[in-house]
Nucleic acid binder design. Structure first.
Lengths: 130, 130
DNA sequence: ACAAATGATACTAATATGGTATCATTATTA
DNA sequence: TAATAATGATACCATATTAGTATCATTTGT
């Protein structure tokens, strides 16, 4: 069971690279450095752009750069972008499916674990990774 | 992003039910109580049997029951059975893929988070859920 | 005008998850 | 001893997610 997908993985690496290198970085350059398939990397960067984590510049001499400080880019946010919101189990949270409804002890437990995990993940920023 | 799959979910519910009801429990009964498709539930219970968490009895009057105490059935173990070993990311752990190899800070961070999560999950047993 | 970059989007492939179907085996019991 | 009610084993199918590709449009510097 993987908690982090390739999407997230590549995104984190790209962000780390960019936080160490001022100015615009092209997809081509990232691909060289990180060994990731180019069109896939493009898609990832485009998404980060849409999410306003990166900014992009078209045309010759263009590329991507961080839009916000590495200190303010949280790993858990990147995970959310590529993997959806973190939740232990949809099922336990949908009362209409779970037969125990509100009383479900498991649900409470899960909830508290979830909080713990999120708490830890929230402390990790790109800045803390480089 | 779900941390717990339906497999695990159903298994946990079945185990909880069985820990509250002495003696053999048939698949049919569980299906009635928990509203899970029968053949799917069978497959799940058969797996728990193979993993020596349940014991089974064939023939008329047969069924399943816990083989070990609910206090010794750990949620994280059930997750492992149905979802494989918990790891944040295979990629970071395979040095030959990660370009930073041994030095990767991310990997260490991930590792420590992983430990934290596992630590919390390890405290949850079936007994603690009922 | 051309080349080098991203934007947008649709498509394909691989893998994981969720679920079904079927036949074999075992044990109870009438 | 035969019917029945249970699990064992296994192969199969459906759906969703993840990973990756392909293509054409747009922008911009030279």
């Amino acid at each position: 069971m993987k908690l982090i997908t390739r999407n997230t993985d590549y995104a984190l690496r790209a962000l780390c690279y960019m936080s160490k290198h001022e100015g615009l970085v092209t997809v081509g350059r990232l691909v060289q450095k990180l060994g990731v398939p180019q069109p896939f990397m493009r898609k990832i960067l485009q998404k980060l752009n849409k999410e306003r984590i990166l900014e992009s510049h078209k045309g010759q001499g263009g590329g991507f750069k961080l839009k916000i400080s590495p200190k303010k880019i949280y790993m858990v946010e990147i995970m959310r972008v590529f993997q959806g919101p973190l939740g232990l189990n949809g099922c336990f949270l949908k009362k209409d499916i779970c037969p125990n409804k509100g009383k479900c002890v498991l649900r409470k437990k899960i909830r508290s674990i979830e909080e713990g995990v999120l708490g830890q993940l929230r402390e990790i920023t790109i800045a803390s990774l480089i």
